[in-house]
């Protein structure tokens, strides 16, 4: 769906926003792009959507070279901090942008009413967007991005300003879209949201992708068991486990068979086991680990 290789963007020869970004988004998956402020996420999204010209880019988008305008007919896009014309109603917004995407009038009428209803904007379709709340504008933005029945949906901070109920609805919608075989490219700061919905993620730091893969594979190395004891950890433990503290033993493995002999031995030594926990990093831990070594946020000057 998206194959990017070695994307570079230098702004006016001063700010190196992207430094050789390569990533791949496959059919029928939700792909999350995350990174700290100024990492270059929005720049990358804008390059995909031809809003920004890359200094260097190779790769394909829907099997056509990046920059091909024709393929934009099959891509839905919701930019961050989007502004719809204040003088249009919700329905007019959908019709206007869909007409620019070459959607026939018949399809516009059908889809507009379907998406307005699906995104909980019933009763607001004939009201000027100037009277919409932030969350409603986000919902309308997503509806706008869906109007051309896209194969690929690119959403930049789609849940920004949306309440928890709305977020859940959007998550469900994205899952439905994935099940229909569409790819969704998400750019968001909300790690918990991404974790719940993304099949794969990429973490960008200072214009480079530092990690990329399924959350499962990226957190593989962090899987461990933690055994908490009431008494002090016995001295033999230091030789059989990876890490020990006063009342805690850490075994770096996700295989439960490995911890069974250790539990047996603890019981033999009549040490009270308070808890045995399988532990795995969440996306936030992963993100923090990825950006931890960076000194300052922002792009490379």
């Amino acid at each position: 769906m998206i194959q990017l290789q070695d994307v570079e963007k230098m702004y006016r020869g001063k700010v190196h926003a992207l430094r050789g970004v390569s990533l791949e988004v496959m059919d029928g998956e939700i792909f999350g792009l995350l990174g700290p402020n100024g990492a270059g996420k929005s720049t990358l999204v804008k390059i995909i959507m031809t809003v920004i010209h890359a200094t260097r880019v190779s790769g394909t988008l829907l099997e056509k070279p990046i920059g091909n305008r024709k393929i934009l007919e099959d891509i839905g896009y919701l930019p961050e901090h989007h502004r719809f014309p204040y003088y249009l109603t919700g329905k007019q917004v959908l019709h206007h942008y869909a007409a620019l995407a070459n959607v026939s009038r018949k399809d516009r009428i059908t889809r507009a009413s379907s998406f307005l209803s699906r995104l909980g904007l019933n009763g607001w379709e004939n009201k000027k967007v100037g009277s919409y709340s932030k969350g409603m504008l986000q919902r309308l933005g997503i509806a706008q991005a869906l109007m051309n029945d896209p194969k690929l949906l690119v959403l930049d901070e789609p849940t920004d300003g949306v309440d928890p109920v709305g977020r859940r609805e959007i998550r469900d919608l994205l899952a439905e879209l994935r099940d229909e075989g569409r790819a969704v490219f998400l750019n968001s700061h909300l790690l918990s949201e991404l974790e719940m919905v993304c099949d794969r993620v990429a973490i960008m730091v200072k214009g480079k992708v530092t990690m990329q893969g399924t959350i499962e594979s990226l957190t593989q190395d962090s899987r461990r068991y933690e055994i908490e004891t009431e008494e002090s950890v016995p001295t033999w433990a230091k030789e059989v486990v990876d890490d020990v503290s006063e009342h805690l033993m850490v075994i770096r493995s996700d295989d439960p068979a490995i911890i069974q002999p250790i539990l047996d031995r603890l019981r033999r030594d009549q040490i009270t086991i308070l808890s045995v926990k399988p532990v795995r990093e969440n996306l936030e831990d992963l993100f923090m680990r990825a950006v931890d070594h960076t000194d300052t946020p922002g792009a490379v000057q």
């Binding site: 804008k46 959507m49 031809t50 809003v51 305008r69 024709k70 393929i71 934009l72 007919e73 891509i75 896009y77 930019p79 961050e80 901090h81 989007h82 502004r83 719809f84 014309p85 942008y97 620019l100 995407a101 070459n102 706008q144």
Partner: peptide, 18 residues
């Protein structure tokens, strides 16, 4: 100026029109 305003122009130039 409103047409090229940030947040507005992205919606338009990301459509299949030169």
């Amino acid at each position: 100026p409103e047409f090229v305003h940030s947040g507005s122009i992205e919606l338009t130039i990301s459509k299949p029109i030169g």
